[in-house]
Design a protein around this nucleic acid. Structure first.
Length: 420
RNA sequence: GGGGAGGUGGCUGAGUGGUCGAAAGCACCCGCCUGCUAAGCGGGUAGGGGGUGUAAAGCUCCCUCGCAAGUUCAAAUCUUGUCCUCCCCGCCA
């Protein structure tokens, strides 16, 4: 969330940013409630101060008249305080609904169409024959099964079978190895069920609860991304400056209800209720964050390059970047069978927006007051869609698929999927 | 699931109604002392919020001893609920 202080001082700036993001922001209500809150608080505190003073006097004198007066003061202070707290709760709830500002380098725009190609690597593969889709290939090879997944779980689920399952495991291992051994991340195995406080910390709540699955009757949510447990790892902590930047990576399943995506990407291994992802999360100081954000994006790109997959780095425009993000890149990999780019990674920097929600701070120097950290995350990469890009890019005329060089050691030396 | 113990500052840990935001120790910081280091001596060091201040500083008040509610003029301390941790028994991958 944004500091209340900023909203008090420069409400117009916050309104403008929200407008360019296409997000509603209840700034005027916040300012009203803020004034109301401070009024009640001030009154309660004035009474309380007097009460504390007289209470000490009473301890000495035991004057029964004073006791009556104190009782009456306590009631008044309690009433004002209760009122102040009620208003503050409303205020806090509204604060959680104010979108983040954005970095000056973010292009202004309204929709996906206004995103900008920032960088490109490789080029569209020349197959020399008509490209098939990953689901066409996958089903023919017997490594993907959507129909039986529909029976067992429902629509938007999939089985990976045999060499398909092995391919995902190989990819996960490969990505984790590169990130831990070469990019300096610490591997984490995280809970995939988290509580509401964690969901609020990363800004998945209160606004986006409909996108996630909740466990009935319990304060537990299936994670939509391991960003949630990783970012919340240090919730309510004060870190030392020399611990920063903290860099974590985790391989987890992710669960999304895909509410509002009805009819979109219903075919194929693209938009599922459950998919796997290797995630990267960084916790940094304010000074480091933009640089670490670029590096994290490069770490994700490194995986795509080693896999030999053509991709574009898109800078998301204000209208498409999301509620919480300060700046966001999407990495889109080319899928010749689909004839379009698929988003295989999304890398974001949040400034202190998540840190304020999650109360994550660090001490810049010994004895110095704590400051909020900055948080960054990105997929490195989403496994399902990376599999799509691999199948479609490395397919051969006979419907088999070559295994990218770097994955072969992870697949027991297998060079071609589907060859018999 | 049943029984028991406990949650206090960066850490260890004392504190069972006011003199406690909190002893003591550790760690850390500043100073003194000493060829250097160690030891010793003195001082300092929780977080949040309101008001004041151009701001930094400062001043001042309020809140916080897992969380929530209650009793009381007054709660770390008493009551209830809740969450979490640990131990024993049962069950279980």
């Amino acid at each position: 969330m944004l500091p209340l202080e900023l909203i008090r001082k420069d409400p117009e700036r916050v309104k403008r940013a929200a407008q360019l993001k296409g997000e509603p922001a209840p700034i005027d209500e916040i300012l009203q409630l803020d004034e109301k809150w401070r009024g009640h608080l001030h009154r309660a505190e004035t009474i309380k101060a007097e009460q504390n003073r007289l209470s000490k006097e009473f301890a000495q004198t035991r004057d029964p008249q004073l006791k009556d007066r104190l009782r009456e003061m306590a009631d008044r202070a309690k009433a004002d305080l209760a009122e102040a707290e009620a208003v503050k709760r409303q205020l806090d709830d509204l604060l959680l609904r104010v979108p983040n500002l954005f970095h000056e380098s973010v292009p202004v725009g309204e929709s996906e169409a206004d995103n900008v190609v920032f960088r490109e690597w490789g080029s569209r593969v020349e197959l020399g024959f008509e490209a098939r889709t990953h689901f066409d290939l996958g089903e023919a090879l017997g490594i993907m099964d959507f129909e039986r997944a529909g029976k067992v779980a429902g629509s938007r689920f999939a089985f990976l079978i045999g060499e398909g399952a092995r391919l995902e495991r190989a990819l996960a291992q490969f990505m984790l190895d590169v990130h831990t051994r070469e990019h300096g991340y610490i591997e984490v195995l995280a809970p995939v069920l988290v509580n509401s406080a964690s969901m609020t910390g990363t800004a998945n709540l209160p606004k986006f609860g409909d996108d996630a699955f909740k466990v009935e009757g319990q304060d537990l949510w299936l994670i939509p991304t391991s960003e949630v447990p990783l970012t919340n790892l240090h919730r309510d902590e004060i870190l030392d400056a020399d611990q920063l930047p903290l860099k974590y990576t985790a391989y987890t399943p992710c669960f999304r209800s895909e509410a509002g995506a009805a009819g979109k990407d219903t075919r194929g291994f693209i938009r599922l209720h459950q998919f796997s992802k290797v995630e990267m999360v960084k916790v940094t100081s304010a000074e480091q964050s933009m640089e670490e954000f670029e590096r994290l994006t490069a770490d994700a790109e490194d995986i795509l390059q080693r896999l030999g997959l053509h991709y574009q780095v898109m800078v998301m425009c204000t209208g498409d970047m999301g509620f919480a993000q300060y700046k966001k890149y999407d990495l889109n990999a080319w899928c010749p069978g689909l004839g379009r780019y698929l988003e295989v990674s999304s890398c974001s920097v949040f400034n202190d927006f998540q840190a304020m929600r999650a109360n994550m701070r660090y001490r810049p120097a010994r004895g110095a007051p704590p400051r909020f950290v900055h948080t960054i995350n990105g997929s490195g990469l989403a496994l399902t869609r990376t599999i799509d890009a691999i199948l479609e890019t490395y397919q051969r005329r006979d419907g088999t698929v070559a295994v990218p060089e770097v994955l072969r050691p992870y697949m027991g030396g297998l060079e071609v999927i589907g060859e018999r």
